[in-house]
């Protein structure tokens, strides 16, 4: 069974004066364990699509199944529970909680979302921080870390609940070249180690070549699907 199935997915934003068609009938499937990216220019619908998959927003039309669940029918609480159990997030601006240390930021979903016992939390967080190369920075607060370090912590936080799916919205946009490559390689490694599906949006041409599957979005339509090796499906 595919992890994500999108059928004729549409999303229309109604502003006061105009209707904005962010997605115009998008169809795709993503298998478990994929390392996929949505690419396209600004306004093409990448973030909207990620928000829909991440259960942060609801489609206007079409069908979207994540892990077999039609997530468009989930209410506020059910949506939060679904995200807490199944989805990890990595944000462009890292979005770490400034009053928590690196360790506590990674621990947060286990404490506040999943209520896991202390012993389990300690091992899991320490293991992940080591895996992302941040074990020696665990006591530092976000304002004491570089952009790349913050994103590593954010990756550990996204993975700490052992989600099926990690969504990353422009994860390298605020990073320099080396840090961006480092983050992509880290995500790929975590995908291989943990069998977690990674989907991210980007318009960063530097990293597109590192991705297994690239979906191209233009003006709300899926215009291409490129599998690693250079074959492009129209």
């Amino acid at each position: 069974m595919s992890l994500i199935v999108a059928q004729n997915l549409t999303k229309i934003y109604n502003t006061e004066e105009v209707e904005v068609h962010a997605l115009r009938g998008v169809d795709f499937t993503i298998e478990e364990g994929s390392f996929a990216s949505f690419v396209g220019p600004s306004g093409s619908g990448k973030t909207t699509l990620l928000n829909l998959i991440g259960c942060l927003d609801k489609p206007t039309g079409g069908r979207l199944l994540v892990e077999g669940s039609d997530i468009s029918s989930l209410g506020r609480k059910e949506g939060a529970r679904f995200r807490g159990q199944n989805i990890g997030y990595i944000f462009q601006n890292f979005n770490l909680i400034p009053v928590l240390t690196a360790f506590e930021n990674v621990e947060y979903p286990l404490v506040m979302v999943q209520n896991r016992p202390v012993s389990e939390r300690q091992d899991r967080v320490a293991g992940l921080l080591a895996a992302v190369g941040m074990a020696d920075q665990k006591g530092k607060f976000p304002d004491q870390l570089s952009g790349g370090q913050k994103q590593r912590v954010a990756i550990a936080r996204a993975l700490v609940t052992n989600p099926k799916l990690v969504l990353a919205d422009e994860p390298t946009a605020n990073l320099d070249h080396d840090a961006a490559y480092g983050i992509i390689r880290l995500m790929e490694k975590m995908k291989d180690d943990l069998r977690t599906t990674f989907i991210f949006s980007t318009h960063d041409t530097r990293i597109i070549g590192e991705v297994e599957i690239v979906y191209t979005l233009e003006d709300g339509r899926l215009t291409g699907q490129q599998i690693s090796g250079g074959k492009v499906h129209e």
Binding site: G54, L56, R76, K77, A80, R81, F82, R83, G84, Q85, I87, G88, Y89, F91, N93, N95, I97, P98, Y108, P109, M112, V113, Q114, R157, A158, T161
Partner: peptide, 16 residues
């Protein structure tokens, strides 16, 4: 507000 958005996105229930 953004922080609230972040913790909600990662699954913190409204009650929390």
């Amino acid at each position: 507000i953004r922080e609230i958005g972040t913790i909600s996105a990662i699954g913190t229930l409204p009650g929390k």
